[in-house]
Simulated scan of single mutants.
Amino acid sequence: MTSSRTISANGIEIFLLEQGEGPLVLLCHGWPELSYSWRHQIPAIAAAGYHVVAPDMRGFGQTSAPSDIGAYTVFDHVGDMVALVAALDEKQAVIIGHDWGAPVAWHAAMFRPDIFVAVAGLSVPPPSRGRGRPLDTLRESGITNFYWQYFQTPGVAEREFERDIALTMRTLLGRGFSDPAASLFVEEGKGFLGDARFDRPLPRWLNEADLAYFTAAYQKSGFRGGLNWYRNIDRNWELTAPWQGAQIVQPSLFIAGSKDAVITGLIGAKRLADMERVVPNLKRKLIVDGAGHWIQQQRADEVNAALIAFLEENAGSASAQ
């Protein structure tokens, strides 16, 4: 049975869900999500013989949300996961991430191969550090309305999302990122949510109880913590300069939906094609036909099967302690 607790690690309080015994598996969620996003994976992976831990990431849910924007860099997020492994009295783990959690997982594997013995990323390909700061590159390409840019000014997106949190969560999760025109580029005057309607039918993978859980959590936490991750995109580029061209050599897995705009757009498609250069020990690249962005919720059985098969082949060293 899944239980919850809060652990002090890396100077913050981290809320987590956990289940099972065996080698440690960390599940890192993305935006705008929670540890609850892994509700289908936690019991399945635990039943396969693993100690599964899914934290609310820094700034989300019941985990601490520092007020300083600079406290949300990739170093902070990886530091949280390193400290969490130690706080759980373990020395090694397999790390799995979705959406923003994927860059955390990829960088954790890159920075600390001594701790993270295998890595899986969902929806977001491994890091490929470009020649310039990402936001500068967008501007120089003539792009001014990408959602990363809309999220930069503190308070703008917060005001939009917090005006009606129930409607916001219904729109964000119900729509997803399957329609790039609606999701990734922000029309002047329409905000990120665009045509937000309460009569939008929920997708089959999301029920009203699930939506109520997300809504209640964001009514307590607000959106600032999660949005601060985006406000460090250029800073992350600067901080990761020492790892320019670095590879992730551990066994790795990638899973995404064929209709996810994160991998179908120009940048994502290129990173998808170039993936093996960054992760030469890629065991499998699974593109789930017809699936969108919220892959581990939308297509739980296929994701679980792929994750468990990967763990059975590659988590052995995490248990040899």
Score class of each variant (00 low, 15 high):
14 I>E: 03
14 I>Q: 03
14 I>F: 09
14 I>P: 01
15 F>T: 01
15 F>A: 03
15 F>G: 00
16 L>W: 07
16 L>C: 09
16 L>N: 07
16 L>M: 10
17 L>N: 05
17 L>K: 03
17 L>P: 00
17 L>V: 08
17 L>C: 08
17 L>Y: 08
18 E>S: 09
18 E>M: 11
18 E>T: 05
18 E>A: 06
18 E>K: 07
19 Q>L: 06
19 Q>T: 10
19 Q>H: 10
20 G>S: 09
20 G>E: 10
21 E>P: 02
21 E>H: 15
22 G>L: 09
22 G>W: 10
23 P>K: 03
23 P>W: 03
23 P>A: 07
24 L>S: 04
24 L>A: 12
24 L>R: 04
26 L>E: 15
26 L>R: 12
26 L>Y: 03
26 L>K: 07
26 L>S: 08
26 L>G: 14
27 L>D: 05
27 L>K: 12
28 C>G: 14
28 C>H: 13
28 C>R: 11
29 H>F: 09
29 H>T: 11
31 W>K: 13
31 W>P: 14
32 P>V: 08
33 E>H: 11
33 E>C: 08
33 E>Y: 11
33 E>R: 06
34 L>E: 12
34 L>M: 14
34 L>D: 10
34 L>T: 13
35 S>A: 15
35 S>C: 14
36 Y>I: 05
36 Y>Q: 10
36 Y>P: 05
36 Y>E: 10
37 S>P: 13
37 S>A: 13
37 S>F: 04
37 S>L: 09
38 W>P: 15
38 W>I: 03
38 W>T: 07
38 W>Y: 15
40 H>W: 11
40 H>I: 06
40 H>K: 12
40 H>N: 15
41 Q>H: 12
41 Q>Y: 04
41 Q>M: 06
41 Q>F: 02
42 I>N: 15
42 I>Q: 14
42 I>H: 13
43 P>Y: 02
43 P>S: 14
44 A>L: 08
44 A>N: 01
44 A>S: 14
45 I>L: 11
45 I>S: 00
45 I>F: 01
46 A>F: 00
46 A>I: 13
46 A>D: 06
46 A>S: 10
47 A>R: 14
47 A>E: 11
48 A>M: 13
48 A>I: 15
49 G>V: 09
49 G>Q: 08
50 Y>D: 09
50 Y>M: 13
50 Y>E: 07
50 Y>N: 12
50 Y>L: 10
51 H>G: 04
51 H>F: 08
51 H>E: 06
51 H>S: 01
52 V>Y: 01
52 V>G: 00
52 V>D: 01
52 V>P: 02
53 V>G: 01
53 V>N: 02
53 V>A: 05
53 V>W: 13
54 A>S: 09
54 A>N: 03
54 A>K: 08
55 P>M: 06
55 P>N: 05
55 P>C: 02
55 P>W: 00
55 P>S: 06
56 D>A: 04
56 D>V: 14
56 D>Y: 13
57 M>W: 05
57 M>T: 10
57 M>C: 05
57 M>Q: 10
58 R>C: 03
58 R>I: 04
59 G>P: 03
59 G>M: 00
59 G>D: 07
59 G>Q: 01
59 G>S: 02
59 G>T: 02
60 F>P: 01
61 G>K: 08
61 G>P: 01
61 G>S: 00
61 G>M: 02
62 Q>K: 15
62 Q>G: 04
63 T>G: 02
63 T>Q: 00
63 T>N: 00
63 T>Y: 00
63 T>A: 02
63 T>K: 02
